[in-house]
Simulated assay, not measured.
Amino acid sequence: MQVSITGRHVNVTDNVKAHVEDKLERCLGVFPRIESIKVILDTENRDQVAETIIQASNHIRITATEKSENLYDAIDRSIEHAERQMRKHRDKVQDHHK
């Protein structure tokens, strides 16, 4: 699994990278088919924006974007939103193949 962390108008420090990687390991470690994850951090006016893009096998692409005044809060919410989407997609596929 390749993890790419990009900052637009934001300096990505080692603490931010460690936080993102730790959160990704805990939340998305259960999905074995993930090929790559891109986390894009941005600043819009006073809000911090975190966008998580997950590319998985079988052309599955999940995108989650969250805004918050706190960068760490935006990262957490974005990754949790992507996790909910992956879980929903996985359950839909498993329920379909009885």
Score class of each variant (00 low, 15 high):
residue 61 R to L: 12
residue 57 S to F: 06
residue 82 A to N: 05
residue 5 I to F: 02
residue 96 H to Q: 13
residue 95 D to C: 13
residue 21 E to H: 05
residue 84 R to S: 11
residue 67 K to W: 06
residue 22 D to F: 06
residue 85 Q to P: 06
residue 34 I to H: 04
residue 90 R to V: 08
residue 60 I to F: 02
residue 92 K to L: 11
residue 66 E to W: 07
residue 39 V to Q: 03
residue 66 E to S: 15
residue 10 V to C: 04
residue 14 D to Q: 12
residue 33 R to C: 09
residue 7 G to S: 03
residue 96 H to I: 12
residue 76 D to V: 05
residue 38 K to H: 13
residue 8 R to H: 07
residue 57 S to G: 08
residue 30 V to C: 09
residue 7 G to K: 02
residue 53 I to F: 01
residue 67 K to L: 11
residue 46 R to Q: 10
residue 98 K to W: 15
residue 53 I to K: 08
residue 39 V to K: 05
residue 97 H to L: 14
residue 5 I to R: 01
residue 66 E to D: 11
residue 70 N to D: 14
residue 30 V to F: 10
residue 16 V to L: 12
residue 71 L to N: 02
residue 84 R to Y: 11
residue 95 D to H: 14
residue 64 A to T: 06
residue 11 N to Q: 14
residue 24 L to E: 01
residue 24 L to N: 01
residue 65 T to N: 09
residue 84 R to P: 07
residue 62 I to D: 01
residue 46 R to N: 15
residue 39 V to H: 05
residue 6 T to E: 09
residue 53 I to H: 04
residue 22 D to S: 10
residue 95 D to L: 10
residue 71 L to E: 00
residue 55 Q to K: 15
residue 61 R to M: 08
residue 10 V to R: 01
residue 73 D to E: 08
residue 22 D to W: 00
residue 61 R to I: 13
residue 70 N to A: 05
residue 43 T to C: 10
residue 68 S to M: 03
residue 11 N to D: 14
residue 53 I to V: 15
residue 33 R to N: 13
residue 23 K to I: 09
residue 34 I to K: 01
residue 52 T to Q: 08
residue 85 Q to W: 03
residue 90 R to H: 09
residue 64 A to V: 07
residue 83 E to I: 02
residue 74 A to H: 03
residue 76 D to F: 01
residue 32 P to E: 11
residue 66 E to F: 06
residue 41 L to A: 02
residue 14 D to N: 13
residue 86 M to V: 02
residue 11 N to T: 14
